[in-house]
Every structure is written in structure tokens, then in C-alpha cells.
Amino acid sequence: MEIPRHWRLKKQRYALVGEVCPHCEAKIFPPRDVCPECGDEAKTLFEFSGRGEVYSYTTLHNAPAGYQAYAPYTVALVKLEEGPMVTAQLTDIDNQPVEVGMPVEMVTRKLRAEGDDDRGMLVYGYKFRPMELQPLAAAD
């Protein structure tokens, strides 16, 4: 059981909350407090839009412990529109072809259960799915 470590990461996991560098405006995810662009301190929280595109991907058949129930599943490197790249599962893809460059959006889903599948704490976090549910208009 690793409840504290999942708990302390919940803002990042649930809603892609990272940081923005107050010095050079670089957007940072995962948060790392030191800006990888300019090296200055960066602790200002920033919520990412969740939109991005697939940089690369593959489908896993030999899942590590805790993930077997979901296998086979697809994982990807997703380039967020604000700049950073994240490692995440793709979901809701079924048999649709995935392609490098495919637009995706963040959703919050179950990642696994901590410890026992039926009794352990549920770990929720970001995954990405094909961008197919677009609002017809954008907010100002």
C-alpha cells in the first residue's frame, strides 16, 4: 500500500496541475519546482488544458502487477499543447487506429487499485483519449 504517495500527487493526477515559470513563462509538467528552461525557481501552479497529440505509442500485453485486468492497453507519449510531454495510457480507443500526431484530450480515469483489486484504494489519474467530443464553440 502506498496511500500517501498517491494522495500527495492528486492534483497532478486528477487535473494535470503543473507549474508555470514566473520568469520565462515555460509550462512545466510534472511539477519540478526548478524551471527546466531557465533554471529559476518555478512554483506557480498551472492547470493544463489537457489537449495534446500523440508523439508515440504502443500496446502492452505483458502488464506489470496491478494492471493485468486492463491488458492489453495502449500507452503513449503525449505532447501537450502547452509544450511538455507526458507518459499516459490512451483510453476509449478500442480498435480505432492510433497514429503519431493524433489529437487527444485528457480524461480522469481509474489507473489501478492499490494492493488488492477488490479491496484496495482506487488510484485515479489522467489518461488521454482521441479528441472526438468537441464543444461546438470555445469560451472567450
Binding site: P30, P64, G66, Y67, V75, T87, Q89, R112, G125
Partner: peptide, 9 residues
């Protein structure tokens, strides 16, 4: 925290 948690190997 950011790779393995996604079931990546």
C-alpha cells in the same frame, strides 16, 4: 510517479 503508474514498462 509519472511513468510506471501508467502501467508502462
Amino acid at each position: 510517479d509519472y511513468e510506471a503508474v501508467q502501467g508502462v514498462t
